[in-house]
Amino acid sequence: MGSASKQSAFVSELLDDPEYGTTGADDQVEFNHTCGECGGHLIPVPTKDGRTWYRCEHATHCGHSLNACSSCGIGLPVRNKRTGLSKCSCGAEYQSCPSCQDGWLVERRGRYGPFLGCVSYPRCRGKAKVSKSQR
């Protein structure tokens, strides 16, 4: 078994050559997400409770991480620059964060009531008002 985050050249060769009959994990979500901080790849890291979070492949230099989608707990919403929404592979849609490249807004509560805050808080402090249709 090889690590997706630190895959060796040997494991890559085994997976690429059909003669060996090796396969990747069937339940693993395919990923190709870019780190909004350094441009590296975001790698899925499963947790004991079945959810996932994503960390930058350059963890020692960058340290950027994101929680997975609030709805499915596995996917990572992808920003559509045209619509201003971030959509997960499970179908959930979120308003994209206005302050960072890869965050999306989730409902939070503050002393003045509900608001939308970036999923990357406190690293990103992007926010928006909750529209009346969302209440």
Rank of each mutant, 00 (worst) to 15 (best):
R109D: 05
Q95C: 09
C38Q: 10
E30L: 15
A4P: 04
C88R: 06
S131P: 01
Q134M: 15
C97M: 03
S3I: 09
K129C: 07
G113A: 11
K127V: 05
T83F: 02
E19S: 15
V106L: 12
K81T: 15
C90E: 02
A25R: 11
K6I: 05
E57M: 12
A92C: 10
K48E: 04
K6D: 05
S86P: 00
P44E: 04
D17Q: 05
T60Y: 01
D17V: 07
E37Q: 14
H61E: 15
Q28K: 11
A68G: 13
E30D: 14
K127L: 09
A25S: 08
C88E: 06
D102S: 14
E57S: 11
T52Q: 11
W53S: 08
P44I: 13
T23R: 14
Y94C: 09
R55I: 03
L15S: 06
A68D: 03
I74A: 12
G84Q: 08
P44A: 13
S96T: 14
P122K: 13
V130H: 03
G2L: 11
L76P: 00
P44F: 08
F115D: 01
R123F: 04
Q101E: 12
A59H: 08
L85Y: 05
P77E: 00
C118L: 06
G39M: 12
C35N: 03
R111D: 10
H64W: 14
P98C: 07
Y112L: 14
S3E: 08
E30T: 13
P122M: 12
K132F: 01
E37I: 12
V29Q: 10
G110I: 04
C124N: 10
P98I: 06
T52A: 06
V29H: 09
N80T: 10
T83W: 04
S8M: 03
G84I: 12
P122V: 11
R125T: 15
V29M: 11
E19Q: 12
N67R: 11
G84P: 02
D49P: 01
G75T: 04
L14P: 00
C100K: 00
S131K: 14
G126T: 07
C72W: 03
V45L: 09
Y20V: 10
S65F: 06
A68Y: 02
S133Q: 15
A59P: 00
C97S: 07
C72T: 06
E19Y: 01
I43F: 03
G21Q: 07
G24A: 14
P122C: 13
T83L: 06
W104I: 02
V119R: 12
S70Q: 13
G40V: 06
H64A: 14
S70V: 08
A25L: 15
D102W: 00
T23H: 07
P114T: 08
P98N: 05
D27E: 13
Q134Y: 05
G2T: 04
G50A: 07
C62M: 11
L42D: 01
F115I: 07
S96Y: 00
G117I: 01
Y121S: 11
